[in-house]
Simulated assay, not measured.
Amino acid sequence: MKLVPVGDGPAIVACNSCRFSAADKDDGEGRRGGALMVAALRAIQASDPGYAELKVEEMPCLFACTEFCTVHLRGAGKVGYVMGRFAPEEDAARAILDYAVHYSASEVGQVPYKAWPDGVKGHFIVRTPPAGFVVA
């Protein structure tokens, strides 16, 4: 394993090797769900300047294999979130990016439930404390 330095701004880190679904490793053409999710996130991000401040990063295996199509939302000094069980398509990518915009604007990473896009509800797996902090 090699660690690659990246910025500490708001980022969506997508698992590029995730399964396509709970039942299938790939889409039948050899494309993994994670790789398709990365492509969808980047396509939606490129289509809307409102997502410009967000970074879409990728890495192999977030170790949430049973959850398929997982992403980790993180930002410096903010609580992070791992979300999964997404279909690797543009609707899911847009919901993730929309949530990430609210997340980025928040002080500590907490987004009021009423601001959550429907496409992320039910997809949260874990929340992670920022380095040096816990939630009280």
Results as ranks from 00 to 15, higher is better:
residue 21 S to G: 03
residue 22 A to H: 11
residue 22 A to Q: 08
residue 22 A to F: 08
residue 23 A to P: 08
residue 24 D to H: 04
residue 25 K to A: 15
residue 26 D to E: 09
residue 26 D to M: 08
residue 26 D to C: 02
residue 27 D to N: 13
residue 28 G to W: 03
residue 28 G to V: 04
residue 29 E to Q: 11
residue 30 G to E: 12
residue 30 G to H: 08
residue 32 R to M: 14
residue 32 R to G: 06
residue 33 G to W: 09
residue 33 G to T: 03
residue 33 G to C: 11
residue 34 G to V: 06
residue 34 G to A: 09
residue 35 A to Y: 02
residue 36 L to N: 01
residue 36 L to C: 01
residue 38 V to R: 05
residue 39 A to R: 05
residue 39 A to K: 14
residue 41 L to V: 01
residue 41 L to R: 00
residue 41 L to D: 08
residue 41 L to W: 00
residue 42 R to F: 04
residue 42 R to M: 09
residue 43 A to G: 03
residue 44 I to L: 10
residue 44 I to P: 10
residue 44 I to E: 15
residue 44 I to F: 08
residue 45 Q to P: 13
residue 46 A to C: 03
residue 47 S to I: 01
residue 48 D to H: 11
residue 48 D to A: 08
residue 49 P to W: 05
residue 51 Y to N: 07
residue 52 A to C: 02
residue 52 A to N: 10
residue 53 E to K: 05
residue 53 E to R: 12
residue 54 L to H: 02
residue 55 K to C: 01
residue 55 K to W: 00
residue 56 V to F: 08
residue 57 E to Y: 07
residue 57 E to F: 04
residue 59 M to F: 11
residue 59 M to Y: 03
residue 59 M to G: 09
residue 60 P to F: 01
residue 60 P to I: 07
residue 64 A to D: 05
residue 65 C to Y: 01
residue 66 T to P: 00
residue 66 T to H: 02
residue 67 E to F: 00
residue 68 F to M: 10
residue 68 F to T: 10
residue 69 C to A: 07
residue 71 V to C: 13
residue 71 V to W: 08
residue 71 V to T: 14
residue 72 H to N: 05
residue 72 H to K: 03
residue 72 H to T: 12
residue 74 R to N: 06
residue 74 R to E: 15
residue 74 R to H: 03
residue 76 A to I: 02
residue 77 G to I: 02
residue 77 G to R: 00
residue 77 G to Q: 02
residue 77 G to P: 02
residue 77 G to H: 05
residue 79 V to Y: 12
residue 79 V to G: 12
residue 80 G to Y: 06
residue 80 G to E: 13
residue 80 G to M: 10
residue 81 Y to W: 13
residue 84 G to E: 01
residue 85 R to Q: 14
residue 85 R to V: 08
residue 86 F to N: 03
residue 89 E to H: 09
residue 90 E to H: 10
residue 90 E to Y: 01
residue 92 A to L: 00
residue 93 A to L: 00
residue 94 R to M: 14
residue 95 A to M: 13
residue 95 A to F: 12
residue 96 I to C: 01
residue 96 I to K: 02
residue 96 I to W: 02
residue 96 I to F: 06
residue 97 L to A: 13
residue 97 L to N: 03
residue 97 L to Y: 05
residue 98 D to E: 14
residue 98 D to Q: 13
residue 99 Y to K: 04
residue 99 Y to N: 04
residue 100 A to I: 08
residue 100 A to P: 13
residue 100 A to G: 08
residue 102 H to M: 09
residue 103 Y to N: 10
residue 104 S to V: 00
residue 108 V to Y: 06
residue 108 V to G: 04
residue 109 G to E: 12
residue 109 G to P: 04
residue 114 K to L: 15
residue 115 A to E: 15
residue 115 A to D: 15
residue 116 W to H: 15
residue 117 P to G: 12
residue 118 D to Q: 14
residue 119 G to P: 14
residue 121 K to T: 14
residue 121 K to D: 07
residue 121 K to W: 12
residue 121 K to F: 08
residue 123 H to P: 07
residue 123 H to N: 10
residue 123 H to D: 01
residue 123 H to G: 04
residue 123 H to W: 11
residue 124 F to V: 05
residue 125 I to T: 10
residue 125 I to P: 03
residue 126 V to C: 10
residue 126 V to P: 00
residue 127 R to G: 09
residue 128 T to Y: 09
residue 129 P to G: 11
residue 129 P to T: 04
residue 130 P to G: 13
residue 130 P to C: 07
residue 131 A to F: 11
residue 131 A to I: 06
residue 132 G to V: 04
